[in-house]
Amino acid sequence: MMHIGYTMMTEQAGPRELVEHVVEAERTGFDFSVISDHSFPWLDEQGHAPYAWSVLGAAAQATSRIPLMSFVTCPTFRYHPAVVAQKAATLQLLSEGRFRLGLGSGENLNEHIVGDGWPSARVRLDMLDEAAEIIHALFTGEYVTRHGRHFQVADARLWDVPETPPPIGIAVSGPRSCELAGRRGDLVIATEPERALLDAFDAHGGAGKPRIGQLPICYGSDREAAVSRAHEQFRWALGGWRLNAELPLPSGFTAATERTRPEDVADSIPCGDDVDAVVDAVRPFAEAGFTDLALVQIGGAHQMPFLRWAETTLLPALRASLPGRSP
């Protein structure tokens, strides 16, 4: 059974709007929600980057059913892993057990602001491994001291610990991150429907654990306008994570995508109101073995029309078409 989720995209809406959107997503019937954790938008045209953890706290109080998740937080540069553990434990208590902690090795776009430089992917994964171990240890409620290669923890303890710690998800893009996810994670996160990533996750201890994907779409009754909006705000997504993790500012993504055409974006992102096109884009994730898929509606001002369409048209179509789902 694949669960369909809703993305609170902090790069394209302010904090109050994000909470309003997830409240409506809960009412609409989405199975879960995720939130991006950014200090910058990808492109200036997106125009937002509120603090995701404040939004999550508000969302936990404004909703009662829909699960929440960071998608994803980097626990190694802007945030120390001990601080991430405290935030996640608090969110789990506020949401009464509805929170999942998604972790990743980060993007320069968000982490450069602390001025510590941007090491190689190998070093960033070593840091993520060490951070995940510290977070797991703190979730026990015991005192934790660690003197690692990257992080120092001295007599740290969480005083408000949920009975069930938040499950930890690890974002993956290649063999080494899949090994880390299988060993440290309670679930895996990927943005492409690549079966090889899930197989590698399974081979290192991930078998039977949830696997979560994400798919951008651009709903609108005027397809040409939807394609234009997707090109304006989401053309950065075509660069792939090897590029997207490295550029430090929105201006870099503007330069990197100056030759990306609207038709290039439309070839990769379902645009308009053709529900079958969205079903076709979702199907590869289901066939690859993903258990959860978070949809991203492009355009902060276009969330409520999308949610109405999702309630009446999209979610019923997906539930009728995907393996294991019934109307």
Rank of each mutant, 00 (worst) to 15 (best):
H3A: 13
M8C: 13
E17A: 15
V23A: 15
V23C: 14
V34L: 13
I35D: 00
E45H: 08
P50G: 08
L56D: 02
A58H: 03
T63M: 03
F77A: 15
R78D: 11
L91T: 00
S95A: 03
L103G: 03
G104C: 10
S105I: 05
G106Y: 04
E107R: 01
E107F: 04
N108R: 06
N110I: 02
D116L: 13
D116M: 10
G117A: 05
L125Q: 06
A131M: 10
A131S: 06
E133M: 08
I135F: 00
A137N: 06
D155Y: 12
L158T: 09
W159S: 12
W159L: 14
D160T: 06
E163D: 12
P167Q: 12
I168M: 12
C178Y: 07
E179I: 10
E179Q: 14
R183E: 09
D186G: 13
A190P: 00
G205R: 01
P216N: 03
Q233T: 04
Q233P: 01
F234D: 02
G239Q: 13
R242F: 09
L247E: 05
L249P: 02
A255K: 09
A255V: 04
R261S: 14
V275D: 09
A277D: 15
E287F: 08
T291W: 02
D292F: 00
I298H: 01
G299D: 00
M304N: 05
L307K: 02
W309L: 13
A310W: 06
A310G: 12
L314F: 07
L315C: 05
L315H: 06
L322P: 01
G324F: 10
S326P: 03
